[in-house]
Design a protein around this nucleic acid. Structure first.
Length: 483
RNA sequence: GCUCCCAUCGACUAGGGGUUAGGUCAUCACUCUUUCACAGUGAAAACACGGGUUCGAAUCCCGUUGGGAGCGCCA
C-alpha cells in the first residue's frame, strides 16, 4: 500500500486566507486520519509577488491552528528543499526531458505578439483565446540560433488537440475535458522560473504526494496537470477538489465582503478551536448530528468520502456560536490567563484585579459571553464605577422612593463584616419587608446603582463580587446622581 | 463568450427509490430567572423548474433555469 502523503502548498503573497486554512486543515485531517504525512511546501515561483514575512506568517498561522507539518521549511524530510525557488535546477532538468520527448517546446514570441494574437482571436469571437503554436515548428537549428542571439524565450507544453482528458476526482467523481480547450501552457517563464503547473506537478511527484487536496478553483487546470503527468510517464495522484468558501452573496469568499485573513479572526478574539471546528464543517460532515469537535476528534471522524460538492457560505453567526461553546468548555484558569492578557491590552492595564477576583467574574460571566474580551466589555462595572446609568432602566426602575430604600439597604449591609451572597439576599428581603415594598423595588434600583445597566449576573453575585465597600459607595453615588 | 463544476429550510447540512424530509446556527414564542444570559420546550422554515424511468422519485436519467469557478510569462 502506497504511503499517504499530502501537502499544503501556499504562495507567500501575504496573509493566510481562511479558505487556505480550510484546505490546509483538510489535508492535515486526511493525513492524520490515514497515518500519513502532511507536507508544507512554499510555492514562491513568482518573484514579483513575493511578500516579506509571508512565509513566517504561514508557519505561525499553522502553528497557532495546531496543524503541525511533518515535512517543510526547517523540517527536513528527505524531499527538500521545500521552497520552490530553491528547486530551479530540478525543474530545468525535468523540462529537458519534456523537450526531448517533444512534449514541450521553446517559444520566442514576444508579449506584444501574444497580446495582439489574443485581441485578434477575441475580435473573431473564437470560443477561447489560445496560443497558435507559432514556435512549435522551429527547427532545432533555429531554436539554437535564437537562444544564442540572446532572445527571450519561454517553454510551452505541447498540447495535442483532439484528445479527451479524463480523470477521477475524489469529490466530483469522473471529470472530462477536451484538449482542444487547453492552451499550450507556459511551463517555464522567461525569467527561468517555472510556472505553477510545472513546479506543482514535478514537486508533487518527487515528494511522493499521493493525494492532491486543493480548492475547486484548481479544477479547470487539472487537465493540464494530467497532461504533464502523462508526458512524464508518471503515476497521477488522487485528486480531491474542495468546494469553495462563499460570501453571503455566494461569490467566492473575498475581502470586500468581510474578513478573509486568518489573522483577522485571531485578532478579533476567535478561538482557534472554534475556527477549526467551524471551517471543518464547511464542506464536510461526519454524517451524524454532531457540531462540536476538537481537532483530535476531527481527525478520528474525517474522511475524504464525506466531503460535499457544493460551495459553502461562511456564516459568521454560527462561528460566533461555536466560539461561545468552545469558550464555555474551557476551564476557568485557562480563561483567566487569556483574560489577563486581554486586560493588559485594555485601558485597565495599569490596574489589573487579583486572580481570585477575576475568577469570580469568569464564573459569573461565562454563560453570558462569546469572546474573551466580553469578560471586560460586557461587564465594565466589575472594573470601574459606573459613570452613567442606562436611561431606559432609570426611567423604568428608579422610583422617588428608591433612594430611601437603597439607603436602608446600604445601612443594613454595612453592619456585616464580610457579607456573602446569602447575606445580600436576606438583607434585600428584610429591607423590602420593612419598607413595605416588593423585592423588585429594591432589586432594580440596586442593580442600576451598582452596575449602571440592567443586564448581567444575579444582583447578589454582583454585590458579592464587588464587595461591601464598593457596593455601598456605589449606592451613595447613584443616589447623588439620580436623586 | 467559451469550458468545467454545483443545486434540500435565510445559513451549514442529514437523507440517495417508499421518511410526518432529520439535526445545528440564526429568527419567533413559552418555561426557568423579578435582570441579561445559559438551559429546556415548542413554532415557523427547504427538496429550483419541466420531462422521463418506475407501482412509487428529494433520491436515477435528460433538459431548462439559476449560481459559481476558470480561461495570464499569478498561483
Amino acid at each position: 500500500m502506497k504511503e499517504i502523503r499530502v501537502r499544503y502548498a501556499p504562495s507567500p503573497t501575504g496573509y493566510v486566507h481562511i479558505g487556505n486554512l480550510r484546505t490546509a486543515l483538510y489535508n492535515y485531517l486526511f493525513a492524520k486520519s490515514a497515518g500519513g504525512k502532511f507536507i508544507l511546501r512554499i510555492e514562491d515561483t513568482d518573484q514579483t509577488r513575493k511578500v516579506e514575512g509571508a512565509v513566517e506568517n504561514i508557519i505561525s498561522v499553522l502553528k497557532w491552528a495546531g496543524l503541525d507539518y511533518d515535512e517543510g521549511p526547517s523540517k527536513a524530510g528527505g524531499c527538500g528543499p521545500y521552497y520552490q525557488s530553491q528547486r530551479l535546477e530540478i525543474y530545468n532538468e525535468h523540462v529537458k526531458t519534456l523537450l526531448e520527448k517533444k512534449r514541450a517546446y521553446y517559444c520566442f514570441c514576444t508579449p506584444e505578439r501574444l497580446s495582439a494574437l489574443r485581441e485578434e482571436q477575441q475580435k473573431q469571437k473564437l470560443p477561447q483565446t489560445k496560443y497558435d503554436k507559432h514556435c512549435l515548428h522551429l527547427t532545432d537549428e533555429e531554436v539554437k540560433r535564437n537562444i544564442e542571439a540572446g532572445m527571450h524565450y519561454v517553454i510551452r507544453l505541447n498540447v495535442e488537440p483532439g484528445q479527451t482528458i479524463k480523470f477521477r476526482d475524489y469529490v466530483r467523481e469522473d471529470v472530462e475535458f477536451q484538449s482542444d480547450m487547453i492552451d499550450d501552457q507556459i511551463l517555464v517563464k522567461s525569467d527561468g522560473f517555472p510556472t505553477y503547473h510545472l513546479a506543482n506537478v514535478v514537486d508533487d511527484h518527487l515528494m511522493g504526494v499521493s493525494h492532491v487536496i486543493r480548492g475547486e478553483e484548481w479544477l479547470p487546470s487539472t487537465p493540464k496537470h494530467v497532461l504533464l503527468y502523462d508526458a512524464f510517464g508518471w503515476e497521477k495522484p488522487v485528486f480531491a477538489h474542495l468546494p469553495l468558501l462563499l460570501n453571503p452573496d455566494r461569490s467566492k469568499l473575498s475581502k470586500r465582503q468581510g474578513d478573509v485573513a486568518v489573522e483577522d479572526y485571531r485578532k478579533k478574539g476567535y478561538l482557534k478551536e472554534a475556527l477549526i471546528n467551524f471551517i471543518a464543517l464547511l464542506g464536510w460532515t461526519a454524517g451524524d448530528d454532531r457540531e462540536f469537535y476538537y481537532l483530535d476528534e476531527l481527525i478520528r471522524s474525517f474522511s475524504l468520502e464525506r466531503i460535499n460538492k457544493s460551495g459553502a457560505v461562511f456564516d459568521i453567526e454560527k462561528l460566533n456560536w461555536l466560539n461561545a461553546e468552545h469558550l464555555r468548555a474551557k476551564p476557568d484558569n485557562e480563561i483567566l490567563m487569556m483574560l489577563k492578557d486581554e486586560l493588559k491590552e485594555s485601558k485597565y492595564s495599569g490596574n489589573i484585579p487579583a486572580d481570585d477576583y477575576l475568577l469570580k467574574i469568569i464564573e459569573a460571566m461565562k454563560p453570558r459571553v462569546s469572546f474573551i474580551k466580553e469578560f471586560i466589555t460586557n461587564c465594565v462595572y466589575f472594573y470601574e464605577d459606573p459613570e452613567e446609568y442606562e436611561e431606559a432602566s432609570v426611567k423604568k426602575g428608579w422610583k422617588p422612593q428608591s433612594p430611601d430604600i437603597l439607603k436602608k439597604f446600604a445601612d443594613k449591609i454595612s453592619a456585616f463584616e464580610n457579607p456573602l451572597k446569602e447575606d445580600y439576599e436576606s438583607v434585600l428581603k428584610s429591607t423590602a419587608a420593612e419598607m413595605s415594598v416588593g423585592n423588585g423595588a429594591v432589586i432594580h434600583p440596586l442593580r442600576l446603582a451598582v452596575s449602571g445597566v440592567s443586564g448581567g449576573p444575579g444582583i447578589f453575585d454582583i454585590c458579592y463580587i464587588l464587595g461591601k465597600d464598593r457596593t455601598i459607595s456605589r449606592i451613595h453615588r447613584a443616589i447623588d446622581k439620580l436623586g
